[in-house]
Design a protein around this nucleic acid. Sequence first.
DNA 1: GTCACTGATCACATT
DNA 2: GATCAGTGAC
Length: 703
Amino acid sequence: MNEDTRPQKYVLRPEAEAAQPRRFLIDYQAELNPSQYEAAITHKGPMLVLAGAGSGKTRTLVFRVARMVEEGIDPTSILLLTFTRRAAEEMLERAGALLGAQCDRVTGGTFHSFANTVLRRYASLLGFANSFTILDRGDSEDVLNLLRARLGLDKKERRFPKKQTIMEIVSLAANKMCSVAEVLDDQFPHLFSELEELMRIDQYYRQYKHERSLLDYDDLLTKLRDLLRSHTEVADRLSHTFRYIMVDEYQDTNRLQADIIRALAHAHDNVMAVGDDAQSIYSFRGATVRNILEFPTLFPGAKIVKLEENYRSTQPILDLSNQIIVGAKDQYTKNLFTRRDKGVKPILVEAESERYQSRFVAQKILELREQGVPLTEMAVLFRSSFHSFDLELELAKRNLPFVKRGGFKFIETTHVKDVLAHLRIIANPQDAVSWHRVILLLEGIGPKGAEKILAHVVAGENQARRLAEYPGKGVIGDELRRLAALLAEVNTPEMKPAEQIEAVVKYYQPILKRNHRDDFPKRQKDLEHFIVITERYNSLEKLLADMALEPPNSSVGDVLATEREEEGLLTLSTIHSAKGLEWHSVFVIWATEGRFPSLYNKDDEEIEEERRLMYVAVTRAKEKLFISYPINVFDKATGMVLSKPSRFLDGLSRKIIEPVFLMEDDDSRDNAWRSSRYENGGSSSRSGSGRSSGGWQPNRKRF
DNA sequence: GTCACTGATCACATT
DNA sequence: GATCAGTGAC
């Protein structure tokens, strides 16, 4: 009381703090919901973000990067690991749009591309040349095939597994960090009798790669892990460089990748893993949902944040999604909800045959386009790449332009791989696999001849000269000198990669004509397209690494489609390749039991993964979802007739999904989908009214 | 040894 | 459809 007379106290803060209460350019709290906000502003320590489908995961990551940069964290100390390079680029672009160019300095990419970057610097510590060559899947298989023959396992009295199978086994062992025996025990019990030979091949394969500085996809990860383990000074340096690590799609990482993260983060533990256990779909690559479940064990004290509000889909689509996943043994329970409670029910279409399905999809797409939905906002998704073949014909017939994602890439075709092999021996003259491929292309030289020449060529330094000096007579001699001349011409540092490729393509043309007489013009076109793709590269090494790690996403046959891009393209995609994407309208085709899930997947875990795959498919849709299943499908492999909808959809209430049945339009009055009321009862006309040549249209009918 | 042709076999997803 | 093993002509 008696203090009245005293002047009031006013406390001055220390000068540092007095500087403006922190102001950010971005109002994070307004842009994000509370969970997203929490994830975005927490930077220290381990954190697991469980992000349901469409819950704004990418947005959260983007704002988190922006926030870190705004707080003054050096962008070069941030590492963003994603599933595809495209995903990383997109996120950093968006962060850049918020904040400006400094976000470009964040390191982003896939585990494999990150491993590649690190190993290009440190491979010599592990006894590899820093100019190592990356083997893609096909290359690796070729090596295995070679070793298989060398070990005399290709004789017909024993049915030894073929290269693809060997590759799968060897690769799974690497990714799951277990022995060949364990892989066999787990997934190939019928091959147990071959264990000894398989182990020998595995052994030789490692040795072969090591001697020639070849790394396959798995080696990129394995060697990075080894490097981090055996060279603590390198591990320290990397850990201090990358002080903030973010891993996207964590549900699709494997143990090896988890180990790498653990080691990279040892100096700080600042790791944010984002994922959704309900969307784990890569177990064939050794990914395990256990990774995400056990993250808190690997990083004790991890904070767990759940993103449960869905911003993508309407409530009816979400209802179906939830129904599909409810049967799963999902250990992190999430409760997806949306405020978008309007919307139409998903539609389940029974098609009498694949043709009907294709016609339905094409017609419906045209109709939606009429209604103003652009083609870029529509997608057709399927389990396996070949499921879309018939539809592709139908779309072409109706002049509907599309891109296809997933499946066989044109970079994997023989002719493109042939051309690439020439460039590889320039980048890495030790690369015997490519030498072999290149020499085998020459006229008059078969497997035996190639082996002999190869042995001579790689026996010493300056391989190109040794090739020219090889004592070959007649046609063979001419061929060898022609090849040597090409290599000499192209092996100059001044040439840009695209120019080198152009020279190789010119040289290769007669070979192409000889080997592919029937479709050689088509293949020639591919090669010209390939030159265009590579024009932006300045370094051959970078080009080769990119072609192996992040090949152009286009499939065979897309080359022509790109010319019409302005008007927008429809997307056809495998479900695997559709991960993380979304469209206004989505068609899921071939949802027939036996195809999806496939007859090949029988055990519980495989079925669970198929279920998650279906979940991923349906959660891509924002407004409209059409699922179709052809019936009366004869499966050659088993002799069974497939005639039921996928078990994930069968028996669902009509409150959840609207069944529709297709039939020809007899009176062919107009071209619109007739939205007539259901006819009652009657299974009599179930087989439609035959293939009348008149206008056809889908119709609705009660089952 | 190489090449062209035949018929059997087997097809999922991807860095 | 692509690949692969097997065959016979050069």
